[in-house]
Design a protein around this nucleic acid. Structure first.
Lengths: 208, 208
DNA sequence: TGAAAATGACCGACTGGTCGGTCATGCCTG
DNA sequence: CAGGCATGACCGACCAGTCGGTCATTTTCA
């Protein structure tokens, strides 16, 4: 039974860590890393500050765990891979629509990452690089494979890929974070379609 | 002679404030608002913390002064107006090239604004809205005027405009802040041309 | 009852902000 | 011209409060 007890304990331990990470992400997205004290996180999780330090060695360690736990990379990879057998037009539309939904689902993480982006907290920057750089590589590779040299305009697919992500991100930030939604209520699908359309015509060319 | 003395003093006072604002912007871009103490700012400006408070009532007041002092809006407006009599193609190219140079010149302000974007420091968010929203309005208006309903694709020019700014911003952040420049060294003009090309073909359509 | 878990008082470092005191400067007066 | 006097820019020790992190103590529970 010691084994069972131990694994039960481990399960509880892991569950606590997960809950703390969850609470921390929510609070950090609201008030920032520096703006949220460990006491506040512990409080929101219903434990004391002392107990917090039984589960994480430091505030920094919690940040690292949050970023590891919630990295967007796997889902981004899955997203890119899932469109591999669509037509290019379909693929881009699907990608944009999924990315949009993704951003909405992971709003807190996006906020946290944006906020700590140029920060002295290197982990956030690394996390960003771990997501953005590989995503970019995947997209560029995909585009080059699909287009072939003659169909693509003579532009860098790496730059174009970044542009696509930039469009999505900026429009997301405008609509969902800066509150532009109130002034210009457009359905998510329409937005995604617009982005995909601009990108497709811009990059692929000719095909009107 | 008291008048001259007074104006000399005022000039010195204003110069001090300007220097403090300059130093603060630089440090804040590096370490963030919360991450930079008033003492550090005063130190970097070669004065004591006590003296700092002769020139600004609070740290918050300094932030407000920095954002007012360095607002990008006038230059953005000038930028949009300066391309008013070009052809659309030329206008977009020029706009992108200018915007790119602009971001480089105001790197610190861009960093600070991005960093404090979703922050509890409302001023940064306001500043962003004061730049982004009017910029967006100008661009959308310009595009609609130039294109006319039949030439534009059936997409929102507001969304498209945000997409353009998003492309520029994201590629800037990738190249200049995340350090992607090292991996993909492309000239500024090439990048600007690529962005303009994608946008033009994407939005304007047909014209290959 | 004994060990594991949880607590919150406590610590030292640091924050934004204050304030009494110093001293170079330049005017006033003789 | 000289010397005393007033000015105010400047300093940095200091304040109250908050932070991340520790640890002796109490609570819990098998």
């Amino acid at each position: 039974m010691p084994k069972i007890a131990a694994s039960e304990k481990d399960a509880f331990y892991e569950q606590r860590r997960a809950e703390l990470a969850d609470v921390a992400l929510r609070l950090w997205a609201e008030k920032g890393f520096d703006g949220t004290s460990v006491a506040a996180i512990a409080d929101a999780a219903g434990i004391s500050k002392g107990t917090f330090y039984l589960y994480f060695a430091s505030k920094q360690a919690l940040l690292e765990d949050v970023l590891r736990r919630y990295t967007l990379l796997p889902s981004v990879q899955a997203m890119v891979e899932s469109v591999a057998d669509h037509s290019l037009e379909e693929a881009v539309h699907t990608f944009v629509r999924h990315a949009w939904r993704h951003l909405n689902q992971h709003r807190d993480l996006v906020l946290l990452t944006l906020r700590e982006l140029p920060s002295h907290i290197e982990q956030a920057q690394e996390a960003l690089q771990h997501v953005l750089v590989p995503t970019n590589k995947l997209i560029a590779q995909y585009l080059e494979d699909r287009l072939g040299p003659e169909r693509a305009r003579e532009i860098s697919m790496v730059i174009a890929g970044r542009g696509l992500v930039g469009m999505i991100l900026m429009i997301f930030v405008s609509q969902e974070i800066l509150g532009a939604k109130r002034f210009l209520p457009v359905s998510d699908d329409d937005i995604a379609a617009t982005i995909a359309q601009v990108f497709l015509h811009g990059v692929v060319g000719g095909a009107q």
